[in-house]
Nucleic acid binder design. Structure first.
Length: 198
DNA sequence: GCCAGGATCGTCT
DNA sequence: GACGATCCTGGCG
C-alpha cells in the first residue's frame, strides 16, 4: 500500500481499509470497522471550516488525525482525499493479531473481544494518544499492510454511523458483518457496501 | 440483557 | 459555559 491509496474518495478508502492490517509499535490488528467523514458532512470536524484543531484534516492524505473525545478517549482517524480537501476515516474496531498480551495490560481486560471493539478501546490497546496527531502513516510506529484476509463484498455492509447526532442517517459506517470484533452488531437493514460510495 | 448516568477536558461561542 | 465521532458501572428485571 502507498499514499495514493488515501488520495481519493474517503468512501472508497473507508470501505477498502476493511481487511487491512494496522500495526502500531508492537501491537497490530485487522481493521473490521470504519466510518467516513467528509467536509460537506455536518458531523465532520472540518464542516465548520479550518481551525487549529482540525488543520490536519485539510492536509496531505495518509496521515493520522487524533483527537480527544469526551475528555477521555483518543480517537484515531486516517486523513484521505487530496491536500486542501478535508476528509478522514475513523478506525472503529480491529481484530487483534499481534501484541495481545500488551493490549491486555493496557486495557486491563482479558477478553480478546474487549480489546479493540470500539474507537476508544483500540486507541488504548495500541497506545494511540494525541502525540500521534499529524503523524505520517507510512513511517514508524505505523505499519499498514494490504488485506491478508478478504471477505466477500456481500459481507461488508454499509450502515448508519454510531454515536453522532448530526447527519446520523448517512450510511457511512463500514463493517464486516460476520465479525465478532466489531463495536456493535450490524443492523439487519444494512446493505452491501457495493455502489454505496458517494 | 437493557438502560441511565457519570467521568473528564480540549475546543469553540 | 456548553458540548461531544466513548466507555464502564450499577440497578433493575
Amino acid at each position: 500500500m502507498n499514499r495514493d491509496f488515501f488520495d481519493r474518495s474517503v468512501h472508497d478508502v473507508a470501505r477498502e481499509l476493511i481487511g487491512c492490517e494496522l500495526a502500531i509499535g508492537a501491537t497490530a490488528g485487522i481493521i473490521v470497522e470504519t466510518e467516513a467523514y467528509d467536509e460537506t458532512d455536518p458531523a465532520c470536524h472540518a464542516y465548520i471550516g479550518r481551525t487549529a484543531r482540525n488543520e490536519v484534516l485539510f492536509g496531505a492524505p495518509g496521515h493520522a488525525y487524533v483527537y480527544l473525545s469526551y475528555g477521555i478517549h483518543s480517537l484515531l482517524n486516517f486523513v484521505a482525499e487530496p491536500e486542501g480537501s478535508a476528509a478522514a476515516v475513523l478506525i472503529r474496531a480491529l481484530e487483534p493479531t499481534e501484541g495481545i498480551e500488551l493490549m491486555r495490560a493496557r486495557r486491563g481486560q482479558e477478553k480478546i473481544q474487549q480489546l479493540c471493539s470500539g474507537p476508544g478501546k483500540l486507541s488504548e490497546a495500541l497506545g494511540v494518544d494525541h502525540s500521534l496527531n499529524g503523524a505520517d502513516l507510512f513511517r514508524p510506529p505505523f505499519e499498514l499492510s494490504e488485506p491478508d484476509r478478504s471477505w466477500s463484498e456481500a459481507e461488508i455492509t454499509a450502515s448508519p454511523r454510531i454515536g453522532i447526532t448530526k447527519a446520523a442517517e448517512l450510511p457511512w459506517r463500514y463493517c464486516v458483518s460476520g465479525s465478532r470484533f466489531v463495536s456493535r452488531p450490524w443492523p439487519a437493514s444494512a446493505s452491501s457496501a457495493i455502489g454505496r460510495a458517494a
